[in-house]
Design a protein around this nucleic acid. Sequence first.
DNA 1: CAGTGGTCTAGACCACAAG
DNA 2: TTGTGGTCTAGACCACTGC
Lengths: 243, 243
Amino acid sequence: MKIKEKSVSLSQKVKEKITEYIMNENLQPDSVIPSEAVLTEMLGVSRYTVREALALLEQDKILYKIQGKGTFVNKVPTHIESGLEKLESITEIIESYGYEPGTIWIGIEENLPTKDMVDKMGLEEDDKVVTFTRIRTANGKVAVYCVDTIKRTDTMEKIPQIIEEESMFNYLKEKHGIEPEYAIAEIIPTLPTAEMIKHMKIKENQLFLLLHQVHYDKEGSPQIYSMDYFNTDVFKFIVNRIR
Amino acid sequence: MKIKEKSVSLSQKVKEKITEYIMNENLQPDSVIPSEAVLTEMLGVSRYTVREALALLEQDKILYKIQGKGTFVNKVPTHIESGLEKLESITEIIESYGYEPGTIWIGIEENLPTKDMVDKMGLEEDDKVVTFTRIRTANGKVAVYCVDTIKRTDTMEKIPQIIEEESMFNYLKEKHGIEPEYAIAEIIPTLPTAEMIKHMKIKENQLFLLLHQVHYDKEGSPQIYSMDYFNTDVFKFIVNRIR
DNA sequence: CAGTGGTCTAGACCACAAG
DNA sequence: TTGTGGTCTAGACCACTGC
């Protein structure tokens, strides 16, 4: 059996070629790179493809353009770290810090939705929901208190006692075909609840950041309602903001 | 004198045409819109232009595409509010809430940069910086405690006592040609400092969100170092997160 | 003025979904 | 197989920059 080869688009290849060129020529910040016309000839592709590649490099803040002048190399980016604006699972976030993710299960329960859930998830008041409560750890250290809620559907015959899968995103994708495409998150500074203090052995005055989110799929349907309490001793919250 | 007319691109016009079409046909969520080929004929423009317009509508979450199937209308978005990922001045943020922005000046000072400023702004240790400290109000209510710092340059002969301009962004753009294009912000939950309590008449246990930011211009040079303490009684912090 | 990036056209082939 | 969106080509004119 042959492994499926990921076909890489031409623009991607051109992007890499241009990156190589910048490296090889050792171009310094603010120095100009060859014009689009020149790159078109150099690389033997159309201007469209060159512009696609340049657009990608501009998104990555490798280059910037000034109309009428040219395309220039940007400052060396210490800013490449992706921030909150990128939707990642908590497992991915913990791994991106270089930590080993772990999970301590608190429980899985069937409930009636709260008023806020009904509003934000577009539920009926007599719909049922399932709530997964976990503590996520990073290198064994208590990192996040997670409360994730999804709508109870007919495909869920019985509620599992526990989920083996480390990542909630992976579990929901594989078992229920739920795949979040974007989320709207409210950031709320907060002190731990009594429940959290009991389970997490933390100080009462420890500050947390609550990420109160609703996740949507590509079609814009709400899929997951989650309240994640992040220990700010472990995480830095970065947002890349664009004009 | 004639007001300079902003020439609107064709893709923009096409975008509006398509929006009108969706309204007129009263298309419901998840219903398919005409294919790109059909739109090309309907509107008498090239497919490139149609795709540009569709891309804009997809960004706005008005539409979504599925390869091989078609382009569809998204759920009605209550989610249109722009979040933290959009770089706005505090004046703009306050106005977007429908409040009237105001300013109480604490002072303007020349200082030596802190270690953190030297690192993040790429300064020398004997560079000078100028720090503007203000309280921003929303409908007269204390909203944000702002500490903005920029590098002292030769073009700044003397330090002003106060700045009339409401918006710091506008002031810096007009007086010093500084125009932030993006920013990297760290979000830190925090309690008010003694200084803040003195000036703002707030409770000691009032939770604030500190937005610790460095603003960069298009070329990637750091321009503004700012610490903005937001009163979470006044503001909700929303971030739109994308996969 | 010449050279740059920004926008637009017309046409082609490919990858994917559905009958 | 047909129709969809995804990618790519070749060529054109426009808007802005700097000489």
